[in-house]
Design a binder for these strands. Structure first.
Lengths: 330, 330
DNA sequence: ACAATTTATGAAAACGTTAACTTATACTAT
DNA sequence: ATAGTATAAGTTAACGTTTTCATAAATTGT
């Protein structure tokens, strides 16, 4: 592949001049410019970004760390991140931590060595310390890592409140919430707080159960329902699941056991990602996280941070509104 | 961030020696090695991969071009590609062509400029010429681009045959196939060939309809069914859809119009990606493409090509077996 | 005892850019 | 006419590595 030197030689100028033509910097004679441009065309010259990166010490690379790339939630989120980043000429390197702290640490190291310009962390395995002292700009999704690391999230408390109120307004008297695993301090846990507070305020009988970490497969979710929920299921007439895949498994469990949804049992999920939107049998009632805006906010926030002027206003957290999607299960 | 020079200075040796310690090349004194290693630790030294890439003219970057990152088929495929590539110390840059030829061309340019080591093309917009004369190793998914570019695919003819036979064996007398768009010469079109040949051989009444390109949303698929299929639906008792999302939309259409599946109409899809595996209402009968093996084969094939020794055996196409998944719709 | 080899290290060039200095000519204003 | 500036282009160092070449001491073989 031809280099700037080849272009310089062919057009009979110095490499500096070629560089100036490329970057439109400084003065260039009209005729010189066209000679250089012709040479670039002739050689199909592609400026070497690696050399540029080394020189400018900016790689244009953004690492996105997710726990599971094939999960509809994260694939959609990455889709949005990539679109925004691409429009701003950043490249996305995907890092699939597979819920494994060691893998995550390796990815961070890799991103350091490749001088990535920043990291978006959507994974929640690693103890947060590794990020706290990171030199690269980091944006976190749905988690408070440290005061210096901005996060982007949807309003989990609001979501929990809307979901709970929806059940209560639907006439539920005994409601259950199945949360995500609580061991990490995720903002998603605010859904549980909202559930409990809202139920309490309404004077309704309620209960919260902690969900385990579950692979995004139907079988795992169904097994969880069988093992941890089935025994207490008859005690409730409304269940708020912290994610749609679990809610769907619960629905399937209920229909297989001839519990009529929504008449005997109302189910509301959370996320409304592509799986849920595709699903029509039943259309799940759920809380929609604005995945498009979340992805955009993550990319926007990180890039502003990378390119920040010295005005210091780039460390703001972003919290976005959620929305009730009324389906057939409530 | 500290460089090799800092390490050299701190340990009182030359940069060459530090480089030798890192890469385990040449002779190094025992005591020197430990001094250097201590210095690297002390400085939290991270070798600059950008500089390495420039020097070695190998970036370790692989570009993966897909039409839609959020589609369950592609997100799963990328997941597998990434896993295999990561184990071999390659990094994946994702390129979302959004079915747009211009965007695709821009991505290819970007990958050229970043001196990516190779490209995996799962997108099918661009006229194939742009790839034919590409210097980088290219592997194509499900499409013949040129004799010099190996492809990876599952056995589409086999899949079409299995699906068609399954319908016939289930007692269908008048069968329909809805293919993907035929304008690109994709290997997926072999499913149609198989359908027609198998039906003909069996002496069964059959018909093929060309599907349009459809966004991976329920609404688009449903609209397609309404506009192009509903009018002729009653003529058939078995339909083979070229993808699961369309098959599901068809199922929903049928149940909304009180056509009993599978009694009056049998439906078989294609792919068995994460959406289909998650879906239990109904469990769709479908042909499973081995996404895990396909992803691995793509990555393996590309990487062998990148690192090829001069034995010339690296341009082989890979075709993998598919499998019938019997669900409730046949 | 002395040549050959093994071991250990360093200096300098190269990879492909950009940026900070130079140099030189042509125009402009007084 | 002459200093000042706008225009045009080249030289060279730098970014952080690896690699080739060179040098020298220590070890080995006869």
């Amino acid at each position: 592949m031809s280099s700037i030197k080849d272009v310089a030689k062919l057009s009979g100028v110095s490499v500096t001049t070629v560089s100036r033509v490329m970057n439109n910097r400084g003065y260039i004679g009209k005729e010189t410019r066209s000679r250089v441009e012709k040479a670039m065309q002739e050689l199909d010259y592609q400026p070497n970004q690696i050399a540029r990166s080394l020189q400018r010490s900016r790689s244009g690379l953004i690492g996105v760390i997710v726990p599971d790339l094939a999960h509809p939630f994260f694939s959609e989120l990455i889709n949005e991140i990539e679109a925004y980043a691409n429009a701003r000429h950043y490249k996305i390197i995907i890092c699939n931590s597979v819920h494994d702290a060691e893998k995550e640490a390796n990815y961070i190291n890799m991103l350091r060595q490749n001088r990535a310009d920043g990291i978006i962390v959507c994974s929640h395995t690693l103890s947060t310390e590794k990020y706290e002292h990171e030199e690269m700009p980091v944006i976190s999704f749905d988690r408070v890592i440290s005061p210096s690391i901005p996060y982007v999230a949807s309003d989990n408390y609001q979501g929990g409140e809307i979901a709970t109120k929806h059940l209560i307004e639907g006439g539920c008297k005994k409601i259950l919430h199945i949360s995500g695993p609580l061991e990490y301090d995720l903002l998603a846990n605010r859904r549980k707080d909202a559930f409990e507070l809202t139920a309490m305020k309404a004077g309704i009988s309620y209960m919260s159960l902690e969900g385990a970490y579950i692979e995004a497969t139907f079988e795992d979710n169904y097994k969880f329902i069988e093992e941890h929920i089935s025994a207490v299921l008859e005690n409730y007439d409304g269940i708020f699941c912290s994610n749609d895949l679990l809610a769907y498994a619960l629905y399937v469990y209920a229909s297989r056991h001839h519990i009529r949804v929504p008449e005997e049992l109302k189910i509301i999920g959370y996320d409304n990602h592509s799986f849920t939107r595709m699903l029509q049998t039943p259309r799940l009632t759920t809380i929609q996280q604005p995945l498009d805006k979340l992805g955009e906010a993550l990319a926007f926030s990180l890039i502003s941070n990378i390119e920040r002027q010295a005005d210091g206003k780039h460390n703001q957290n972003i919290v976005l509104d959620v929305q009730l999607i009324k389906g057939d299960t409530t």
